[in-house]
Structures are given as structure tokens and as C-alpha cells.
Simulated scan of single mutants.
Amino acid sequence: MTPTDIELFGRKTFFIAPDTSLIPKAYLEEFLTLGYQTFIINDDYSCSLQAKVKEIIRLFPESILYFNIDASVDGIEWRSYIRSLQESIGSETLIGVFYLSRQSPADEEAIKSYYLRDLNVRAGCFALSAHNHSDFDSIHKVLEQSGARGRRNLVRAKCDPSSSVKFEYRGSSFTGTILDVNLSHFRCDLSGGAERFQIFEKIRDASLSINGSSFTSDAVLIMKRKGENSSLCIFMFIKRDDSPDLDKDTEKVLNQKIYQIILQEITEELQSAFRNSAN
């Protein structure tokens, strides 16, 4: 991933070998709304977990990896494995651990003492509970403390070439190619039309198509830049009363689409790397 991509699309967090009853996949979409890119990596026979972790760090060196130290994985003793990994990775990658809460306070203290004080894992150490309905909040707090949003507060997704925005403005029709989108803004190439717009001009009832999903929203132009072969414009979503953001129903639709785009992109990239690593 290039520095430009990191600036645009932020940091990624991977939960390694989690108990999905404690970290269900539904959490991942909720975290996306809050600005976090979170993914689950499971152990399987196609590629060892050690090899998967190596590929994740190679592809996403600024990622955060949280290891479930209660998981039983062939060839891994968590204390020695995480110590060795901590010594071998660069400063960009952060490691943390999580586990099922212990009944014994002494056991809890021993875990925290080893990982936080002895190993100094920089992404934190947290417990989850099968009987605790606040696990989501516990994970959110740890993500926030570890800087898992990266440099952006909202997750941005790259759009496919068919994604577009269409709208009417002062009696003329305009069409642009949407390049990427988050829950508050979209960036598009408005070649052949950008010169007609000044910063802070509003467009009404713009029709947007994002990777096959369509919705309508008002927007306001907040930035434009003329390139050699393009006119890049950034629009901010606004409501009919000109207040920022999308209405709640549209925001939910867009968040689901952004989640699908990012999950598919990362899954395909990782699966390709895992296959190559296994061969």
C-alpha cells in the first residue's frame, strides 16, 4: 500500500482467530460507521495462521493485529509467538491481545502483566465476556485508544468505473465519475463541467450510483482541482435544510455498500496472498 493510499483509505485492524460469538461479524459493519476498518482472520488448513499474519504485515504494514490468546492453533504457543513477532516487526505495525475474561483476578493480572508490561504490546490487552453485553463498547474503547482510525475519521472506499453522479444545475445536465466515497463526502471527476461551479455551490437531488447501489442526495462542492486530463471535485453530502451529512436511511444503505466494497477488496487481496504463500 502506498503512502497516498494510506492517507486516503486509513489503517486496518485484524482480529486474529476470534471466537465469533464474542466478536460477531455484525460488529464489523458497526465499527465502519464509527470510522474503523476491522476484519476477521480465521485459522484454516489452506494456509497456516503464521503465514497469514506474515502476509497481512507485508501488505498492510500500518495495520493493527489483535490475537485471541485463547484460540487453539497448531504450532502456536501464544506467549512465545507474540514475543517473537513483536521483536521482528517494524514500528509501524501494532500488536494487541484479547481473551475470555478470567474468574480469578490473579489470572487476569498475570495476563496483563505479561503482555502489557513484559512484552509492551502497543495496541492494548482486553478481556471479553460471554455474559457481557458491553463487549462492543469494550472493543471500541481499545480501538480508539490504539489509533485504529488512522489518519481519517471516516472510512473511504474506492468505487468501480461504473460509479457515477448525475444532476441538474441551472438548466444543464451534468455527469461525473465517482472515484471514492465515505459517509460524508464523495470525490468525482467532473470533466467538462467543473469550470461551471464555484466552491460552496450546492446541487440538489443528485443521483449517485456506487458499485451498483443507487440513492439520491443533495451536496455542496467544497474543493476542486484541475488535472491534465481530469477535473477532480469533492462534494460534501448535505440534507435538504443544508445541514451536513446524509439522512439516516441513506447513510445506512451507503455504509453497507462501503463495507461490502472494502471487505471484498481486502478479502480478494488477502486470499491471493495466502494462496501464493501456501504454494
Rank of each mutant, 00 (worst) to 15 (best):
Q256L: 04
N255P: 07
G193A: 08
Y169V: 11
Q198L: 07
L246E: 00
F215E: 05
T175E: 14
D205F: 14
A157D: 03
F197C: 01
D180T: 01
Q260M: 12
S191L: 14
T175D: 11
D180E: 04
T250I: 06
I178Q: 05
S243D: 06
G227Q: 00
I258S: 02
F167C: 11
G193D: 07
K248F: 02
S172F: 00
S213A: 14
E265Q: 13
F197N: 01
I222Y: 06
F186G: 01
Q264C: 12
F215M: 03
V155N: 06
S162E: 15
I203G: 05
L221P: 06
C188H: 13
L221G: 04
K224R: 06
M223C: 00
S230L: 02
S207F: 06
V253W: 00
F186R: 02
E269M: 09
E251A: 15
I178A: 08
I266N: 10
I258Q: 04
K202W: 01
F237P: 09
K224S: 05
G176Y: 04
E168Q: 02
N182A: 00
A194C: 08
F215C: 02
L179P: 02
E251H: 13
S164R: 15
K166E: 13
S191V: 12
E269P: 00
Q198M: 05
E201F: 09
V155C: 09
S209E: 15
D160G: 14
R170E: 13
Q256T: 02
D241R: 05
A219R: 08
Q271R: 05
S243G: 03
P161S: 15
G192V: 10
L190D: 11
I266C: 09
T175M: 12
K224Q: 11
L232W: 01
K239P: 07
K166T: 12
G212Q: 09
S173R: 14
E268H: 07
R187C: 08
I210D: 06
L208W: 12
Q271A: 05
G212S: 08
